[in-house]
């Protein structure tokens, strides 16, 4: 469960990225977060992962209040999240298997559990490659599947994805979105940041639209088309 209440975020240089945001996402929900570049989408992700703290208001994620969270709790909170990025963020010198196993190792899981769980999630995300290979030997779509597997491996209650399809072609993008939908159907809360409207339109999901640091619409297929995006389509 995610609850953002009257959240404002100003960066050290004075940029006001969020100007009073209220968002609640229930357990088991699937939501898109959309908006033009610079509207504050990534800032919301960084607040939810406790990379940055809110300037005003409060952020609650899976029972943890993040406003002034201690390091130890921060680690525990992050174990309830699976995070996916546009640029995959895999460790290049580790194998596919190790990239996923590593996330479990960090939480203190036992080798036996790791050996059972990693092949299971790699299978779940539909990755059919030799898991001893390095990420740079894989296609973008395959790399993102590895990243999804890593996000899932600790059995998080929430998956957060920041532009997960930004580096993929339309077919791979759709596949990844469908994978996230499947994960949501298995019970995990999913929040996906994207500005690819075509993709959002293919799913009957809740859409939270952000502009200039404010939520401008929030509802089923409530994607507002902005002037700016009409002028410069993103695909």
């Amino acid at each position: 469960m995610i609850i953002m209440k009257d959240v404002q975020k100003a960066y050290d240089n004075g940029t006001r990225a969020l100007k009073g945001v209220n968002i609640t996402i229930q357990d088991g929900e699937f939501a898109f977060l959309v908006g033009p570049s610079g509207s504050g989408k990534s800032t919301i992700i960084k607040l939810l992962t406790a990379e940055v703290a809110p300037t005003e208001g409060s952020v609650r994620v899976n029972g943890y209040l993040l406003d002034r969270i201690r390091n130890r709790k921060k680690s525990m909170m992050r174990r309830t999240l699976g995070v996916i990025f546009q640029d995959f963020r895999l460790i290049e010198k580790k194998s596919v298997y190790e990239n996923v196993a590593f996330a479990m190792r960090v939480t203190g899981a036992r080798e036996r559990e790791i050996q059972k769980r990693v092949p299971y999630v790699l299978d779940l995300v539909g990755l059919n490659v030799d898991t001893d290979r390095r990420p740079d030997e894989l296609s973008g779509g395959e790399q993102q599947r590895v990243a999804v597997a890593r996000a899932l491996v600790n059995n998080p209650s929430t998956i957060i994805a920041d532009e997960p399809t930004g580096n993929l072609d339309p077919v791979r993008s759709l596949e990844i979105m469908m994978l996230l939908e499947k994960i949501n159907e298995l019970g995990t809360t999913v929040l996906v940041v994207t500005h690819e409207r075509d993709l959002v339109d293919r799913f009957e999901k809740r859409v939270i639209a952000l502009d200039n640091g404010r939520v401008i619409s929030d509802g089923m297929r409530g994607y507002v088309i902005h002037e700016q995006e009409k002028a410069t389509p993103t695909e």
Partner: peptide, 13 residues
């Protein structure tokens, strides 16, 4: 980068 990933997946200090 590796350290950032470790943080992200919930590694302790």
């Amino acid at each position: 980068e590796e350290i950032a990933i470790m943080r992200m997946v919930g590694a302790r200090n």
